[in-house]
Design a protein around this nucleic acid. Structure first.
Lengths: 339, 339
DNA sequence: TTGTAGGCGTTATCAA
DNA sequence: TTGATAACGCCTACAA
């Protein structure tokens, strides 16, 4: 049986009130008492029962995050770093992180969110992989339930978010490719209803426009953010009668898949074909050749999201914040020779 | 304000007792009443407050898992798949998964575990990355707190676990390398106090012995399970006056780092130098050349661990189970040519 | 500065 | 078959 506040109070011949307040740092407890209480609690190994406190305070001191395990093999290293950031930052503020997994396509995703909201299992949510119209945003807004997002939706709703300027990044990348002499620049996309896809694709188009190149829908093939998706999409591009000389990919995993397709055809990436990604995952440093990518500080972004959410929980009244971050173009060998 | 059981009871002119029992499927409620209750609860959008129930039942219906974020850049894809397995399997049984992060070396890891135990925040733990003498096992055993592990420790304590036979796997790999004509086979290890290291290293030694090769301590270099660790360790091996012709690595990430070192020296992996890993992560399929590895079903292992833990929670009395799994040797091009 | 008492939303005991 | 009531462990007005 764990030690309760009662045990501590009894041992000291104090009321549980005093013990509770001494431990919570209230000012109306004498220093002598406080010291005794803290020391005894420590000695007895007392740790407040979080659940009881939660019930009393109507707060779970817990943040919810549901991993979008869309593919059977869920392997995007993005989420490693992301989770590490969420976990560390939450722990720092003595918050817990409740994690679950759901396929965004399936109904059980909705059930999960609703269960945590209605059962007051968490105080707020971290959302990412936003869709342009995302039911989660609408639902949580209606329920008046705190949340923060990475990337934004098109909904006319105010909420806290961190945004990575995928558009500017992609535009910069296209310029770089054009500078390297490329004229036929393809793009491997993600599902069109994803926010990150919309902005990165917009950047691709803007980049073409800015450099006077014409947009060719035939050079855009949809992937699914995985290696395999990138591999297959790249095959289709390389099968074209007039294939591209450069491929910009919506993320690093896609680019890595595309590199594989190129290799299989005996093409030398960085020479015969330029390939670039987006994310800056570690794996991209070690590919052959190393992958040019738009690097975003995933860990820091995760920390920022937690901070934003905690602020929101503390002060529900303050206006929502939007934090903007620009990705950094890391030019590596996969694009450093022209055509 | 969320709807409580009281609201439902009031609406139906029933006592909260009856409502509670109707919803929990007790048999002493008339079918008519139960039907009414369930329907009304549904209509009103009632979801039991999990926290209140937890307090009352002394159960959190939550599983705890603390990610070992030992390196600043925490990127091992192993944990993606592992987490997905834990999350999905837990959700299936209506359990939640509480996640945090801690560096095994730091003191804050102990605090975290203790806080969750003492605060009864979780019902049990999933442990992995076991050390040969692991304070977690000892602590939880003393506290009589449920847990299951992936890999085992040397402690004389009975507990549920899933074990991957790293020794047999590594022995098989060494045989394979010898068959391919290798005689100087190096090994890049992990920290010696890790259980997985002990068994895999034992397999390496057993493999040498079985094939009549002499063990040479100079051919063993310690890595840290990361790409970079593997990279540096491989450099040391390749700097030897009489370098190895094959390198067995404690995991895939290490092997991928080692490949990079080989590439940088202009060596062709699979021809000049054989390299193999352990884990079977997806990335290992796409390396150049594809990496020979000992594949383990990470997702299924995670599911098994959750199942074991839930059984333990349901029936504390039954004797601990040990589930044994053998890794599968996937021979790919990184080792398929001899010397 | 300290103590008393009530209640958070549930489930469990016992009586009706 | 149903209902009143007492916890679970903690926090917090309010009283002393």
């Amino acid at each position: 049986m764990p030690i309760t506040i009662r045990d501590v109070a009894k041992r000291l011949n104090l009321s549980i009130t005093t013990v509770s307040r001494a431990l919570d740092g209230y000012s109306d407890v004498s220093d002598a008492t406080r010291e005794k209480v803290i020391q005894t609690a420590e000695e007895m190994g007392y740790v407040p029962n979080r659940i009881a406190r939660q019930l009393r305070k109507h707060k779970s001191e817990t943040i919810g995050y549901i991993l979008p395990t869309s593919t059977p093999r869920f392997n995007d290293p993005f989420f490693n770093t992301f989770l590490a950031g969420l976990g560390n930052e939450a722990t720092l503020s003595n918050y817990d992180l409740l994690v679950s997994t759901a396929n965004p396509a399936e109904e059980n995703e909705q059930q999960l969110y609703k269960r945590w909201v209605r059962g007051r299992r968490v105080d707020g949510f971290i959302l990412n992989r936003m869709q342009l119209h995302d039911w989660r945003v609408q639902y949580l807004a209606i329920e008046n339930f705190p949340f923060v997002t990475l990337e934004r939706t098109l909904d006319e709703i105010e909420y806290d978010s961190v945004e990575v300027n995928g558009q500017a990044g992609m535009t910069e990348l296209i310029s770089h490719l054009v500078e390297m002499g490329h004229r036929r620049i393809a793009y491997i996309s993600a599902s069109a209803n994803l926010s990150l896809e919309a902005s990165r694709f917009a950047g691709y188009q803007a980049g073409l426009a800015a450099t006077g190149l014409e947009f060719d829908a035939g050079l855009v093939v949809e992937g699914d953010l995985t290696r395999n998706g990138g591999y297959q999409a790249a095959q289709r591009l390389l099968d074209l009668t007039s294939p591209p000389t450069a491929i910009a990919c919506v993320n690093d995993l896609t680019a890595i898949g595309a590199m594989k397709a190129a290799h299989e055809r005996g093409q030398v990436v960085g020479k015969d074909l330029a390939i670039a990604g987006f994310d800056g995952i570690e794996e991209a440093e070690g590919t052959h050749p190393p992958l040019t990518t738009l690097s975003q500080p995933i860990y820091e972004i995760a920390c920022q999201l937690v901070k934003l959410l905690l602020i929101r929980l503390e002060s529900p009244e303050i206006p929502p914040q939007r934090i903007r971050i620009s990705p950094e173009l890391l030019v590596r060998q996969s694009t450093n020779t022209g055509k």
